[in-house]
């Protein structure tokens, strides 16, 4: 499978504050890539960069070997909230991508039978065909997120970005939707980039897990003067064998969680940038001389 997303030497700065610090990342097609990190590590910023909503201060982001543009159909997105358009029924929400792409902007009455059938197909895939004519506010949170997934899938985006999509759901619904998303990922051959702050979710879902964190050290000195931003401090391969929640009880799973907690979430545990645990085969890292004196 080819490389779909390629991020090289990306920095993102807001004013003087560095949020993302020399990010290098390649994601292969078909990967279920989860990103986890403490609050303030810049994971949402990274997602917005990939989405094209913001531009990197430095560095390049390529999707399918083309520089990332402003938001377009090359990326799909599912947010925690605001993914659905409240003035449209479920079916209208799902068919919307087709309507917007094919219909003219001044024509509010554009309809196409085939598109509606396709939308119904996707609604069936998320098991919501019965709710086709309801409005989003009449659905539960879990159902809304399922509609949002169908809405994104109908465009067949090369990469599906998800920004804490299950963050507002209760634990049971959440577990249901996780299993359900895995099933979709497998059947539709999706490439997913999934941002969350929940380590269990990240470990359970992904085939590859990135830990983004601002807690690390390098040769730029200590203290606030270094002005460090978030970096990918760990890049794990996850084995996707069982699609059941039982793995979570597994001792290896628990160990991994412990390890990630230490790598990314512990402000006291500062790994040096040259010692990051980047054992995924697609992982690479280009450190500057200032970050690691032996590197150059």
């Amino acid at each position: 499978m080819s490389i779909l997303l390629s991020i090289v030497d990306v920095y993102k700065q807001y004013g003087d504050k560095v949020v993302l610090d020399n990010i290098d990342l390649r994601v292969r097609q078909g990967e279920f890539c989860t990103v986890v990190g403490p609050s303030g590590c810049g994971k949402s910023t990274l997602l917005r960069l990939i989405l094209g909503q913001e531009t990197p201060t430095q560095g390049s982001i390529e999707i399918n070997r083309k520089p990332a543009q402003l938001p377009d159909t090359n990326r799909g997105i599912v947010y925690q909230r605001y993914s659905l358009f409240p003035n449209r029924t479920v079916l209208e929400n799902v068919v919307l991508g087709k309507t917007l792409t094919e219909g003219r902007w001044w024509d509010p009455f554009y309809r196409n039978k085939f598109h509606l059938e396709e939308a119904l197909y996707y609604l069936n895939r998320v098991r919501l065909a019965d709710a086709a004519n309801k409005y989003p506010h009449e659905l539960s949170g879990g159902m809304q997120q399922r509609v949002a997934i169908a809405q994104a899938l109908i465009m067949k985006p090369p990469i599906l970005l998800m920004d804490e999509p299950f963050g507002a759901l209760d634990p049971d619904t959440r577990a249901d939707l996780q299993l359900y998303l895995l099933e979709l990922w497998e059947k539709e051959g999706l490439t997913i980039f999934f941002v969350t702050h929940d380590m269990h979710e990240a470990c359970f879902l992904g085939t590859r897990l990135l830990v983004l964190s601002q807690y690390y050290s390098d040769d730029r000195g200590a203290g606030d003067s270094a002005n460090r931003g978030g970096k990918i401090v760990a890049d794990h391969v996850l084995s996707r064998k069982a699609t059941s929640a039982e793995v979570m009880q597994d001792s290896r799973f628990q160990q991994l969680i412990q390890q990630i907690r230490q790598e990314g979430f512990d402000p006291e545990h500062l790994q040096h940038a040259k010692d990051f645990n980047l054992d995924h085969p697609d992982s690479f890292q280009t450190l500057l001389a200032s970050e690691h004196k032996d590197a150059s």
């Binding site: 938001p71 377009d72 997105i77 993914s83 358009f85 919307l96 917007l100 985006p157």
Partner: peptide
């Protein structure tokens, strides 16, 4: 988000 979402929908 809604504007970005609409853009990703073409």
């Amino acid at each position: 988000e809604q504007i970005v979402k609409a853009k990703t929908l073409g």
